[in-house]
Amino acid sequence: MQQPPIQQQQQQTSSPTEFLNNVIGRPVLVKLNSGVDYRGILSCLDGYMNIALEQTEEYVNGQLKNRYGDAFIRGNNVLYISATKLRE
């Protein structure tokens, strides 16, 4: 019986750039400072957190209000970008 090495228990650090490279093309949740949520497929983004989403759904107070095929979100409004973890 062997204990797993510590390196396997602690995940390596992940810089914002790595995070962004990992989430492009995946479904994400983008929350704005106003509280409005956007769910969609992240097509691309830049260092300002300007975001282009596909198949976008707009949620206000948790309720679906709108759907957009493509949406551009100006980065200054973004509070966070959330994704589910990649499982290997």
Partner: peptide, 11 residues
Amino acid sequence: KLEQILLNGNN
């Protein structure tokens, strides 16, 4: 609950 986020540092 959120699995992984990139949080904007501005606020």
